[in-house]
Amino acid sequence: MMDQELDRTLVSIFNEMEKVDYQQKSPRRLRVDVAPEALPGLLELLKGKASYVHLSAISCVDWIEEEEFELVYHVWSYEVNSLVSAHTRIPREGACYLSVYDLYKPAGFFERDIYEMYGVYFEGSPHMEKFILTEWNGPPPMLKDFDAEAYVQDTFNWQDYQPDWLKDLEEAGGGVEIRPEDVRR
């Protein structure tokens, strides 16, 4: 259990590495900030030495103002019963990072998803191709600079909100209170 004191193995791992910054967020959650070049090594130590065998997700955050992507690797240990979230930041321009597929097999799935949604390429990942959006040719849609609303406005038409039956309602004092046109830009 990881209550008051950090697990000793973990501390020894963190001491082994440079450029690691860790914070205990709650009894079972640990946030580690690590430089991109040190992250695969950290994961390897976590898996090999500290039983963090389950990569439950990789998430990606687009920090558009800082021109960086943040990748978060969530690894879980069934022995220590705790979650380590390893955060790292990579430059946004031509984003490319190393795959951890050889360490954690599920990474192939998460990396493919991130590549599709954010355009971050993972070197060494087995399937860097389309995944869910097989019929989408636009930019990666989760990027902050992809304006979904503008895309929708150019691509689709809206239903007519002046139908005949509405006129009867309006005469009787009813009708649409807030028109969709007023909500949309």
């Binding site: 989408w136 979904a148 929708v152 689709f156 038409n157 809206w158 239903q159």
Partner: peptide, 19 residues
Amino acid sequence: TVNGGMYWQSYATAKKLNE
């Protein structure tokens, strides 16, 4: 199906089925 409903600003859903 009428107008995209709560997905009206989603790039992935069609808005007006009768088109």
